[in-house]
Simulated assay, not measured.
Amino acid sequence: MTWIINLKVKVIGNVYDKLHNWLFPIDEYARDIVTIPRYNYINSVPFQKVVLDFLAWKGIDKKGNITSNRVYPTHIEILENQTALAKCGFSTGKYIEKLVVSEFLEMKERIPDLNPVLFAHFLDDSYHNSKLTKFTNLEAQKSNQTTKEYYDRLKAFLIEIQSFFEVEDLRTRIECNHTENQNLGNSFKYEEFITAFAKIDLNCDELGRFSMTYFINPHLKELIGESLGDTLEKRFEELTNCKMEGFIKMVPLNRRYDKWFKEIQTIPNYKVTVTEQNSL
């Protein structure tokens, strides 16, 4: 009987899916907004608790005085702290304690009256994964430097391609540095660079490691021609097949690229620039 019930459930599910797709059809080119993993955005309440815990355990009292009276947490308190970190989206929380203490001591020198509660609010507002990069080992730091260099080269390459066009829309580029615009709330994305035919992102994960993601407009060659289109695709293929493999990948979008490109230009803190046309 169990298999009959399972079969009925499966059939009903298939019928529902077909009915849903018929009533709410999805454009086959609707692939545009990147799905943001949950750890990209910090949950404020547990994050502030984590900050207060780490400061207290280091002997920093409620008034912000730095004492030698370290507090050794109980097993339950450690578990609660780990739970709070998980609610913030951190799988390990590696380097977070170092960051909290380091940032507090640095800010305390500038603001003598600083207390843990005020600091917790500040760090909550300004936190970005890139703050963790200084605590990574030399291998990770070297990898980050290499990834950033490739990102900058790719950005320069896209700008160079833009300079060949007369159409202003193809010369329009959109940039955003998420470390300078904390109000956007994305702690994963580091930088974004967007054109009408391709976009690239420089990201930083919760372990302070850089990576790159990209997406190419499905209508690339219709926009910029076969020759330039082939050149651009080859450049991305070279990156994904060389030593950058594992650090760069294509991430699909879930809306039409052209509509998304227009809409993102209206978002505050995204800088819109028109690349100068090459006169040659």
Rank of each mutant, 00 (worst) to 15 (best):
R255E: 11
V45N: 09
E245F: 06
T275H: 00
S68D: 07
T92L: 12
T172W: 04
T231W: 03
T213S: 13
N6F: 03
I264C: 10
M1T: 02
A140N: 13
R110L: 12
N144L: 10
W22C: 08
K18F: 09
E180Y: 01
R31Q: 12
I159C: 08
V71C: 02
Y29P: 01
E226H: 02
D32Y: 01
P73S: 01
T35E: 10
V101G: 00
H178L: 15
V274K: 13
D53F: 12
C176D: 08
K271Y: 01
A140M: 09
E233M: 14
K62E: 11
T67Q: 06
I26A: 00
Y127H: 11
E222L: 02
S143M: 15
N217F: 04
R31N: 11
E180D: 06
I42D: 13
M212S: 01
F157C: 07
E175I: 07
D169T: 14
A56K: 12
Y270N: 13
L105M: 09
V100L: 13
T83V: 08
V274T: 14
S102K: 03
S227Q: 14
P268R: 02
E233Y: 00
Y190N: 09
W3E: 15
A156P: 09
S126T: 14
Y41H: 14
F188S: 10
I33G: 03
M1Q: 08
I248E: 04
F197V: 05
E77Y: 00
F122Y: 05
P112Y: 03
Q182D: 02
D27H: 02
L184M: 14
G59L: 13
K58N: 10
E237G: 02
N137E: 08
L7F: 02
A84F: 07
V274S: 08
F157S: 03
F215L: 15
K58Y: 03
F47W: 06
S44G: 05
R255H: 04
L85V: 05
D205K: 01
E226V: 11
T35A: 05
K8H: 04
D258H: 11
L220E: 08
L118Q: 07
V45H: 04
L223F: 00
P218C: 06
F164N: 15
R173P: 00
N21V: 10
D32E: 08
N177M: 06
K98S: 13
E139K: 15
I200N: 11
I36A: 13
V11S: 07
Y39W: 04
Y39S: 02
N40C: 14
M250W: 00
T172L: 13
E222F: 00
E263G: 05
P268W: 00
L280P: 12
I66G: 13
D17F: 11
L184Y: 05
G59P: 14
R153W: 02
N177Y: 03
I267R: 08
K58T: 08
K8V: 12
Q48E: 14
A120H: 06
L184H: 04
R256N: 14
H219A: 10
W57G: 06
F247G: 09
Y151N: 01
I111S: 07
P116D: 03
E109L: 15
W22D: 05
N177E: 11
C242M: 09
E103P: 13
E192Q: 10
M212P: 06
P218I: 12
H75L: 11
Y150A: 14
D125S: 03
E237Y: 05
F165D: 03
F104R: 13
Y41W: 08
E160K: 09
S211K: 03
L207V: 05
N14T: 12
L105P: 01
